[in-house]
Design a protein around this nucleic acid. Structure first.
Length: 231
DNA sequence: CCCTGATTCGC
DNA sequence: GCGAATCAGG
């Protein structure tokens, strides 16, 4: 199988829609999960919750993953011992609420703005991706307000009762998505498939559009994963 | 064990 | 560019 424009588009939309690499691979067919991930990365679609990512700092000068096959001893170079970690005790973004300075806590000055720091944050260095690291003293005082977020029920809800969920998918039911992934009522069509196709007859009609002669085309209908809402 | 995504590197 | 092999966390 090769990466046609259609397959790449589907991969992109599913990936952005939150489908796992396995699901995408299964949906596309003819490719492995690894192929999907590899392609996604090459497309620049990276970044999304990974089980093995929270880590970041360790500079990989030495090869942590070497035992693969016989390889020239080019990595036999004196691995720089323990990278000079953080040359600057820069502000860590992964820290909990910026605990106020101990002495400040002792004097208990709740209403007193710890610092009139007005700022122009002193940039200490530039991090991966281009974010600007700041010095410890430049750390913002106010605790970031709890971001309003819309919580979604993780388990069966009234909305999806009786609907075809991802787990209900098989070769005999229509896989046309109804709604958007992550929404409480997201589900799949679930009707009997048009034999030989992943969708029912009705949705095959949506999925497989006849090409109209150039010039007489109308804007295509919304696609399953990217569209503004299909139902 | 199963799953996940990330990464490496021979092809 | 592709993707199997491998890693590492859940």
């Amino acid at each position: 199988m090769s990466w046609t424009d259609e397959r790449i588009e589907k991969l992109t939309k599913m990936w952005e829609g939150g489908a796992t690499a396995s699901q995408i691979a299964d949906e596309l067919g003819g490719v492995s999960r690894n192929a999907v991930i590899g392609k996604a990365h090459r497309l620049g679609l990276k970044a999304r919750p990974s089980p093995v990512k929270p880590n970041e700092k360790p500079a990989r000068a030495a090869a942590p993953v070497a035992p693969r096959k016989a390889r020239p001893a080019e990595d036999a170079l004196p691995a720089r011992a323990a990278e000079p970690a953080a040359e600057v005790p820069a502000a860590r973004e992964d820290r909990a609420p910026p605990a106020r300075a101990p002495e400040a806590a002792a004097s208990a000055a709740p209403a007193t703005p710890a610092e009139p720091v007005v700022n122009q944050p002193r940039i200490v260095s530039v991090g991966p991706g281009g974010f600007l690291r700041q010095g410890p003293g430049d750390q913002q005082q106010p605790i970031p307000p709890a971001p309003p977020r819309r919580l979604v029920p993780a388990k069966p809800s009234a909305e999806i009762a009786g609907k075809t969920s991802l787990l209900d998918l098989n070769d005999r039911v229509c896989r046309w998505p109804m709604g958007h992934p992550g929404e409480p009522d997201f589900h799949f069509c679930g009707d009997k498939v048009n034999p030989g196709f992943p969708y029912c007859v009705e949705h095959c009609g949506r999925a497989y559009q006849a090409q109209l002669p150039r010039g007489s085309r109308r804007p295509p209908p919304p696609l399953p994963f990217g569209g503004p809402r299909v139902r």
